[in-house]
Amino acid sequence: MRRTTGPEIERLIQVLAKLPGLGPRSARRAALHLIKNREKLLVPLTTAMEDARDKVTICSDCGNVDTSDPCTLCRDPRRDRSIICVVEEVGDLWALERAGAWNGLYHVLGGTLSAVEGIRPEDLSIARLVERAGHEGVKEVVLAVNATVEGQTTAHYIIDRLKDLNVATSKLAHGVPVGGELDYLDEGTLTQAMRARRPF
């Protein structure tokens, strides 16, 4: 194939194309846009990304990503530390925060159980959850996992692991459609599902 740009630009396009939501065409457009707006976009983006690379860590309590460990949410004194909301991914945590649907702590599992994908209990942050749920003062664990087969299987698993602790467990109420993923729900539905959560 004939080269139309230098390797640096080609590499930029290739990396951009790996971002979710960007295909080869839109990556090309994004690269061009960055290059054209060097001072306004390319330079601040480079700095922002370097800062992110240097400072972002994963919270060793809840699994959230932030620039401090424990994360801002875990350190916030106004949050209710007696309730923990379990989510699959950081994106779900952000969705709940956007909706303002939760004022307790979170716990990010980092995925769901899946035999076919080889994701086992030890690959998820379940042991740490059991440890946190056993801390004094924790009263309830809410399973805000997706209404998918994998999400519900993971919920069953966690409920069993928590059953000897002195905590209540609940899951999101109807309103989350079967097969539904939290990340895609509108904020009203999410708030509704959280308010109407039921014991497992």
Binding site: L113, A115, V116, Q152, T153, H156, D160, R161
Partner: peptide, 22 residues
């Protein structure tokens, strides 16, 4: 999922129960 798990040397009983309940 259940069939795959059963192939394990020592299948995880808690995981299996979750699948079987569903």
């Amino acid at each position: 999922e259940r069939n795959l798990l059963l192939e394990d040397m020592r299948p995880d009983g808690v995981w299996l129960s979750g699948l079987e309940a569903q």
